[in-house]
């Protein structure tokens, strides 16, 4: 079976650091920054386990601010 590879792109400036995407991701791909903040002063979501993402979109679906774009491609 072909494996799905995914990737997320977070709109950092739109992110409010609510952490709901982090909780929703079944594979712990995302985490909030601990040091960096965006212009609003929020710790924002970022990809920490790049290779693990399957592009399931859970993080993006639960994001209240529509900050996450998800891409998915079949691994050849």
């Amino acid at each position: 079976m072909a494996k799905m590879k995914g990737a997320t792109v977070v709109n950092i400036e739109r992110c409010k650091g609510c952490n709901l995407c982090v909780v929703a991701c079944p594979l712990h791909v995302l985490a909030l920054t601990t040091k960096n903040v965006n212009q609003k002063g929020y710790n924002y979501a970022q990809t920490v386990l790049e290779d693990t993402c399957t592009g399931c979109t859970s993080c993006a679906v639960v994001c209240p601010d529509g900050c996450i774009t998800v891409y998915r491609k079949k691994e050849e």
Binding site: A60, V61, R72, K73
Partner: peptide, 18 residues
């Protein structure tokens, strides 16, 4: 697979509604 290969318009499966 390189992440740049995945992040292509044709592979987009979720984005903020238009």
């Amino acid at each position: 697979m390189d992440i740049k290969e995945i992040i292509q318009p044709e592979n987009m499966v979720y984005h903020k509604p238009d």
